[in-house]
Design a protein around this nucleic acid. Structure first.
Lengths: 337, 337
DNA sequence: CTGTTAGCGCATTCAT
DNA sequence: ATGAATGCGCTAACAG
């Protein structure tokens, strides 16, 4: 049975006044007689009247909803980011529509499309590893839906973004390894789509340069982030005649797989081979051999910052102003255990 | 600058026909002349016309949105559940509004309220550990918004739910410990709000009974799931004159904290003390001393099942039928490493 | 085959 | 101080 919620009209009918009077009374409009105002409020309370937000959204052409598109929620990095996003959104009386791309471009496109259909007021996105172009996001300009990328930011101009600068920490991480006596340091990078800014690699190079260490190209390998991809990449490093004594790797998840594999290959972790990584996810505290150091990327703060930026864009949009592209860069921090 | 998207009216105006004709043409209504139909479709394509879904939602009194309220996303259990939920939702062309209660009743209430304001078509919920009543969910009946609880299901009648039966697996888990020679088995339970069905405890008792082992009340302790809560609970067990040789504990997260604490206390894990747990979360594969066994609760399947049930309720609602309360119970499974 | 009318729930402009 | 009229974008009942 469809229940019928009381509407402003129903109240008007019962009181023999017009709907607009009811509307104004409810909004404490100054030019409403106290008597009628009281009567309206009283009846509204009795009937448990609540304005139908969807009607209001429809009229105002706003939904008080933001869309969040990200690769997955499994990684603690993203769930931490959501905490920041949700906190800011709730402060603004907004709520979050969520969608996981599972690193699949087609799914990401479908999600963006669906969110557009729902007329979200803005979109936050961290792109999938298979995202080779961002037309689906750029389309949003036609609908006046601002998009802010965070963490996994595409290599494009004319976008808004929030991310951590990994260059400095990368230099620092590699220098730390060098100071600890390592001379052959492998670099296990992620898939090309996620390496577009080369910050990690540039940092790796710079540290070598500063310490006058030659860079051996064969020490640089890639994984698509899958367990198998990581294993074969690590395998390539271990097969080398002169194998590395340390590996800088894309993120903690990859590193855990890498460490597991190295152990299977009977290497003594932190002795035969050391690992330094990115993300600094909390679960690593429970594992036997966590990376010796990891670059904290402050997911919560990125989430907060991205969402705040998005709200600035939304506010400007309703004010009819153009916004210059903003690319906020936060600092990262090397955490040594 | 507010862009103006083409509307059905605009098309009508340009073609000097009525809006309803345009609407029908776009929907391939049978009784529309081929010529006008083509003309409409052609112009619509040229203008990149897309129906304004929010208007349609408004008219149909549906939002194609479901609300998901859960304690947090950090636990892999919940993020796995979301995968199931999202997959089913997307199949139905629905999208998911998300909200984390962070185990705070007030926040849970606010989230439910907000989702109601957004007129979600249904709500999926896993209650917070501080949820002592469910009035805020029951209120949803007044708005014809069906609610399905999953995993953390409140102890109430007249609700819909999907959960795992933990009784059998609990018996099995404890019996497994007993068969492995343990005679004093501690039980580290969660907060009272999450133990309402006592399935774990009943199973624990039953296994003792079957094997004619006495149950020592002092072996049963509780944690509020915080690290400190878990530590002091474990501490209580370790302080006992006759300390347990094994502990059955609320879930893997609690267990990881418990194990960490036991190690700090210089106990040899799996020798001085063994752990068996619930949830079987994947991260445990990376840790040095995972629980020896864990009860798989199939979060993905729970998510799928709960969402399917929710859609059945939504469909019946639009068909104007009453639905009997459904409480789906899935099997759990003890996974031994 | 197509147009006219009405209405979803609300806010707002223009009258009175 | 209040009511009538209008419109947001779309669909559908009713009329030709």
């Amino acid at each position: 049975m469809e229940k019928k919620l009381p509407t402003i009209k129903e109240i008007a009918r019962r009181l023999n006044i017009s709907a607009s009077t009811v509307s104004r009374a409810l909004h404490d409009h100054p030019s409403i007689g106290l008597r009628t105002k009281m009567a309206v409020k009283k009846l509204a309370a009795e009937l448990n009247y609540e304005p139908n937000q969807t009607a209001i959204f429809f009229k105002q052409r706003k939904t008080f909803t933001i869309g969040l598109v990200l690769p997955n929620l499994r990684e603690e990095f993203f769930s931490a980011a959501i905490n920041g996003i949700e906190d800011v959104a709730l402060d603004h009386n907004y709520i979050v529509l969520i969608g996981q791309s599972h690193d699949d471009l087609a799914r990401e496109q479908k999600l963006v499309e669906t969110m557009k259909n729902h007329r979200v007021d803005g979109i936050l996105a961290s792109i999938s590893s298979s995202t080779t172009h961002i037309e689906h996001f750029e389309q949003m300009k036609n609908y006046d839906i601002p998009v802010v990328f965070f963490d996994r930011v595409p290599d494009a101009k004319d976008i808004h973004s929030v991310s951590c600068n990994l260059y400095d920490s990368s230099v620092e991480a590699v220098e730390w390894l060098i100071r600890n006596g390592h001379k052959r340091i492998g670099y296990l990078q992620g898939p090309p789509t996620l390496n577009m800014k080369h910050e990690r690699l540039d940092g790796y190079m710079e540290a070598h340069k500063k310490h006058k260490l030659p860079v051996d190209e064969s020490l640089i390998v890639s994984t698509n982030l899958s367990v198998e991809g990581t294993r074969s990449a690590v395998d390539a490093l271990l097969q080398l005649k002169k194998r590395p004594t340390a590996i800088l790797s894309f993120n903690d998840y990859v590193t855990l797989d890498a460490i597991q594999y190295a152990r299977q290959k009977k290497l003594a972790i932190n002795k035969d081979i050391c690992f330094v990584s990115y993300a600094n996810v909390p679960v690593t505290q429970y594992v036997e051999f966590p990376p010796l150091a990891s670059v904290e990327q402050f997911p919560y703060d990125q989430g907060v910052s991205a969402t705040e930026l998005l709200f600035r864009l939304i506010d400007k949009k309703v004010a009819g102003q153009e916004s210059p592209y903003e690319n906020i860069v936060l600092k990262s921090e090397l955490i040594i255990r």
